[in-house]
Design a protein around this nucleic acid. Structure first.
Length: 576
RNA sequence: GCAUCGAUGGUCUAGUGGCAUGACUUUGGCCUUCCAAGCCAAUAGCCCGGGUUCAAUUCCCGGUCGAUGCACCA
């Protein structure tokens, strides 16, 4: 077992040295919160994204869209990010430290200080002592620090733009197009994988808190009346460790529940949340997150956004950082669509037919235009329209036209009662949002895969990456560098490459050293070509984790490795 | 952002006001029939900017990055 205190240093050192993750633009002095993915990291990231797509796009059928990372101001006014994503800050004039203004005010006994205006806050703070240096603040300006990067679109600073702080808004703003694409049938969803930006005040923690990061988000639009997932059966019996509100408040460990139990027991709000919670567990474990270092924590009522019905985080345990929020799964109700409907004027609804058309009785007022016309002349049409909308009293109806209230006696209109067939209603869907931090997933995978052991008195460092995420999928070695073994090995490597398996040919140095090199970057399998290959056409296939070997015909390699890297076969099964 | 500490080849490290140390790695060669073997050779470094000085990797100031504490973390 590895000492937990320094595992981050070890993982990051390896990641840098072997080309997984680098500080961005190091030559000019790196800037905190930005990273580069090196050759192996970029490959691994792509594989993880591809697995994510398999789950959400292929299996769930939620197509991927791609929206700009720069968005016009109105999008983020509607979403609430312009107002809500800003912290009110102030700076101590004596020691120059920055503080959250509302926190200072609350320390002075003001309740819910976050609702105060900047001026009100400044007034309160003027009398407060600085927690940094102890001096009384005096006159201090309170200013907004918005976590969004701001930019200008076009010359002349005409339109403000923001780098998106999440990919979700693009899906919301495309809602009407999407609902037509899906032929107006709920539920439907769309996903997006891409960069998002947050100008963190002080990002530390390397890959964990970035200013530019990759999100994979799904927005699933559901009928608010029907929060039963059509494929719930798939995960109904799936077990997950749940750290619900109750367990957190009574300070006990997470409880293991099937999704059916969790929904029936009211721990998880609905089948959709439960379904994506289980799917997320499934996905994270399949890319190599250790299930014993994975838990799902429910947001407490006070940390949950006011509009959200329920929200769970998948948390991954890190030796350095503790439990790291890696995925968030929330039922955001119709908050986002409502906000965009209001700001944009678009309806953001879907017509949902009833199971059976309902007949409703409606009263209809039909004006007697023969009388109204001559009497009211130009106003007659408006009065008739207003009459149709009004509910009449026993002897007549009052209507208001152009600010003038007019009484129309009952004999000037006829009251019809008619039956209307109502086939459905306009529904504003609720949004179920699973949101993944790809960079945090990658770090979690690296940390959980990192292992050290002593083999023959030498330290062996190995990344036990799942075969499906390992950047290099198989290594190909000639046992020795002579007698034509190299040519055979090169041929085998190129056959594997032709089959779209990433094979790394290496003939440099002793064979043991080559195995170790591949172990360190997590290559799950290695093929060695020896003299028996020349005679019998067989090769050895070596398993990274057990260091066991099996001998097999070279002709079977492609099929065997394809099956191994899709995790259809375990290496042990190859030994028959 | 504040405070404290740190920064030497790819990695780990020695050391210094005047030619920068060693090991590992990497590359080329020899050798080698399966887990970092051996031999020969090569490549490669004092975080950035300014100051002091004849001379700065070393001393001073500022910055960047990193660790820790505080603050922050939709």
């Amino acid at each position: 077992m590895i000492a937990v205190s320094d595992i981050y240093d070890k993982v990051i050192e390896l990641a840098k040295r072997r080309g997984f993750v680098w500080p961005s633009a190091e030559v000019y002095g790196a800037v905190a919160g930005f990273i580069d993915y090196g050759p192996l990291g970029a490959m691994m990231k792509r594989r993880i994204e591809e697995i994510w797509r398999h789950y959400y796009v292929i299996r769930e059928g939620y197509y991927e869209i791609e929206c700009p990372t720069v968005g016009a101001e109105s999008i983020y006014i509607a979403s609430g990010h312009v107002k809500g994503f800003a912290d009110k800050m102030c700076q101590c004039p004596h020691c120059n430290e920055y503080f959250r203004a509302d926190h200072l005010a609350e320390a002075c006994g003001i309740e819910s200080a976050s609702h105060l205006t900047k001026e009100e806050l400044a007034e309160v703070i003027a009398g407060a002592a600085c927690p940094g240096c102890g001096e009384v603040f005096g006159k201090t300006e309170v200013f907004d620090f918005n976590l969004m990067f701001q930019t200008m679109i076009g010359p002349g600073s005409q339109r403000k733009g923001y780098l998106r702080p999440e990919t979700a808004q693009g899906i919301f703003t495309d809602f009407s197009r999407l609902s037509h694409f899906y032929r107006m049938k709920l539920p439907f969803g769309a996903v997006q994988i891409g960069k998002s930006y947050r100008n963190e005040i002080s990002p530390r923690q390397g890959m964990i808190r970035l200013r530019e990061f990759t999100q994979a988000e799904a927005e699933i639009f559901v009928n608010p009346e029907k929060k039963r997932h059509p494929n719930f059966w798939r995960y109904a019996d799936y077990q997950v460790d749940l750290w619900g509100i109750e367990q957190q408040q009574s300070n006990v460990d997470p409880i293991r529940k099937t999704m059916r139990e969790a929904v029936d027991g009211g721990i998880i709000a609905n089948e959709y949340i439960a379904y994506y919670l289980a799917l997320t567990h499934d996905l994270l474990v399949s890319i190599g997150i250790d299930r014993s270092r994975l838990r799902f924590r429910q947001h407490l009522p006070d940390e949950r956004a006011h509009y959200a019905i329920d929200c769970w985080d998948a948390e991954v345990l890190s030796g350095r950082f503790g439990w790291v929020e890696t995925v968030g799964i929330a039922d955001r109700t119709d908050y986002d669509l409502r906000a965009h409907a209001k700001e944009s004027g678009d309806s953001m609804t879907v017509f949902v037919p009833f199971d059976e058309a309902r007949t409703e009785k409606r009263k209809k007022i039909v004006a007697d235009m023969g009388v109204l016309g001559p009497k009211y002349r130009g106003k007659a049409k408006k009065i008739a329209d207003a009459l149709a909308e009004t509910s009449p009293g026993p002897d007549g109806a009052e209507v208001t036209v152009d600010g003038e209230t007019i009484f129309i006696p009952g004999d000037l209109y006829a009251l019809h009662e008619e039956e209307v067939e109502v086939r459905g209603a306009e529904v504003m869907p609720h949004v179920i949002e699973p949101s993944y931090g790809i960079d945090r997933m990658i770090y979690g995978v690296l940390e959980h895969a990192y292992d050290e052991e002593i083999v023959d008195g030498e330290e062996r460092r190995v990344l036990r990456l799942a075969p499906c995420v390992a950047p290099v999928q198989v290594a190909v070695f000639p046992l020795v560098n002579k007698d034509g073994l190299e040519e055979i090995a090169r041929k085998i490597a190129s056959d594997l490459l032709e089959a779209r398996i990433l094979a790394d040919y290496d003939d440099n140095g002793a064979i043991g050293r080559r195995y170790r090199r591949q172990d360190e970057i997590g290559t799950p399998f290695a093929v060695t070509i020896d003299y028996e290959t020349k005679e019998k056409g067989t090769v050895t296939l070596r398993d990274r984790d057990s260091m066991d070997q099996v001998r097999m015909p070279a002709d079977d390699l492609v099929a065997a490795i394809e099956s191994l890297i899709r995790c259809r076969t375990a290496f042990a099964d190859l030994k028959r």
